[in-house]
Amino acid sequence: MEHGFIDRYGNLDSCVHRLDARVKILSAFSFIILAVTTPPKHLLAFVIYAGLLLWTVALSRVPLWHIVSRAAIVIPFSAFVALGLPFLEGKETVNFSGIDLSVPGLWLLAGAVMKASLGVAALVLLVSTTPFNRLLEGLRQLKVPSLFIDLLALTYRYVFILADQAMRLRRAAQARGFRPRWLPQAAVIGRQTGHLFVRSYNRAERIYGAMRLRGYNGSMPAGPSTALSGKNVLVLTLAVATLVFVRLFAK
């Protein structure tokens, strides 16, 4: 069922897909952190970041549209910044249809939009080239607490089922002519949500029963863990080194 989940392409085959999850996670997170800490005025850096990303997307065979289309989530938050623009005092202003916009403010807006878009793109690429369970295993091997990984894995397994149930409840109401337009109608949605909650709780008890019957004792047993191969280490080092270089020297 189509949920708008972005891990649709996780099972393709490409050199990027074949990399170890840890390499991809660390590269993506370094990319995001470094991009976010780059001052907006270093336009060249941002251009190079985008270029590196596009090149990786091409290697991965994930459709570009899939990655770019997610960047739209930046728009609502950008509105906040845009609203503030006329009130900033900077040394320079630029006149736009009668309103004085401050140039530092415009840099701020540009920076926010670029960083958010690059962040989204990097993340979508990560998730599109790594099946979620391997992503979680990678995180576990990177020492994220096992308990949290267990929670993430279990939650991931059941979000599809519960989301399906939620959608079905909504469609059933729509089929009976329910088109919410006023806030008080949230009460109907509330009843649907209540329904969903009780079924979810009952399911949790059944799942727990099933786990106990197969010997569950508080932690999910994990598979064997492997060391990073030489090739993976090389790719990771190159990736991070390139990003740091761009961050420090591209202006």
Binding site: F132, L136, A153, L154, R157, R206, I207, A210, M211
Partner: peptide, 10 residues
């Protein structure tokens, strides 16, 4: 309900 018993990633 088989979904209650298949709770692992794979």
């Amino acid at each position: 309900d088989a979904d209650d018993q298949l709770f692992c990633p794979t």
